[in-house]
Design a protein around this nucleic acid. Sequence first.
DNA 1: CTACGACGTAACGGTTGCGTTCCGCCGCAT
DNA 2: ATGCGGCGGAACGCAACCGTTACGTCGTAG
Lengths: 189, 189
Amino acid sequence: MLRNDITVAIRNAVMSELAEVGYGRLSIEAVARRAGVGKTAIYRRWSNKLEMVLEIITDVAGRKVPVPDTGSFASDLDLLMMIVSRALQHRVASQIIPDLMAEAARNPQIAETLQRVLRLHQQSVGEKLVGQAIARGELPEGTDPDVAVDLILGPLYWRLAVARQPVSDDYLEKMAAAVLGSLRGGAAT
Amino acid sequence: MLRNDITVAIRNAVMSELAEVGYGRLSIEAVARRAGVGKTAIYRRWSNKLEMVLEIITDVAGRKVPVPDTGSFASDLDLLMMIVSRALQHRVASQIIPDLMAEAARNPQIAETLQRVLRLHQQSVGEKLVGQAIARGELPEGTDPDVAVDLILGPLYWRLAVARQPVSDDYLEKMAAAVLGSLRGGAAT
DNA sequence: CTACGACGTAACGGTTGCGTTCCGCCGCAT
DNA sequence: ATGCGGCGGAACGCAACCGTTACGTCGTAG
C-alpha cells in the first residue's frame, strides 16, 4: 500500500544526503526535507536511521556487476580496472563508499553489511577472473585470487578514493601492466 | 600561559573522540568531558571544531617517519610494508584515517591538510626508496615513484583499512614479492 | 600581599534532531 | 456514498550541542 514513488524519492534522498553529509550527520529530517516528504512516510517504512541506511545500501550495492570475460586475462584486467576506476570516480560512489567504510569501523552492523556485499562481489569477480586465466594457462596454477584482487583493487582505490588523484588512461595502463606482471610472476601463489 | 598539561589532555581527548565517533559527530562538549576540562579551556585555544582538529591532526601526522635504508630494495620494501601494516593496524590510526579521508571528500580544508601531510610523506618516501633502488641498479631507470608508491601502499590500505581482513606475515611476503616483481618488470616506467 | 589569568562549573538562549502524535487531504476500493 | 489508509504538515517533549558569559578558585609572578 506504500506508494512506490515516495519510496523511490526517499531512497534517492538518502543516497544524496549520505554523499553530502555522511552517515554520521545524516538526519531523518534532512532526508524528508530533501525528498519532499513527511517524516511520517519515512518512519512508516523504517524504524531507524541505521535500518533505513542498511536496507538502502544493501539494495543498491547488491546489484550484479558484470564480470569481464573477453577471452584473455590481460584484456579482462584492463576492462575490469577501467570499470572500477569509472565507478570510483562517480561522485556519489566516491563519497559514500569511504564514508561507510569509516563508519563500519565503529558500527558492527554496517561493517557486517558492507563486508557481505563487498566480499560477495570481490570473491566472485576474483575467483572467476583468476579461474579463467588459470584455465587458459595465463596465470600460474595456485594463484591466490584473494591476493590478486587486493593487487588489482588496492592501488586503484588508494589512488582514487584516498589520495584522490586523477587516473589517466596512461596511468591505468601502467598499473594494469604492473599487476599483470606481478601475477604472472607467480608471486601470489 | 595556557597550561600545557591541559592542552595535552585535550589533544588526547580529541584523538580518542575522533576514533570513537568520527569527525562528523565529534562535539566540543564531549571532548571537554573526556579531557576532564571546561569548554572554556578549549575555546581559549581554538575557535572552532574544524580549526582544532586540523591543528591537532597536522601536528600528529607531521611527525617524521623514518625511511627504510637497509641496502637492498627488496628488504627496504619488506621493512616498509611491515611498518605500514603495523601502523594501519593500530586502533586509533585505523579508525581516524579512513574517517578523515571520507570527511576530506566534502571539506576542502580537511582535504588540503591531509593531502599536504600525505603527499609530504608519500613523495619523500617514494622518491627516496625508488631513487636508492635505481641508483643501485635494482630498478629500471625511469621507474615512476608515484606508481610505485600506489602499488606498495594501495593493496595494504585496501586490505587493512577497507576490506579489514588480517594480514599475515605470509601474506605480507607474497604482497611484497608481487610488488617487487611488478616494479622490476619495469611496468611502472 | 596583591593582581592577573587560566581553570572548572554552571547557566544562558538558540538550534537541530529525535521519535511520536494528531490533523485534514485525497485516492481508491468497496 | 462511505470508509480505509497513506500522505504532508505541524507540533509535541526531550535531548544534545553550539558559542558565550559570569562566577569563584587557585597558582604564580611581581
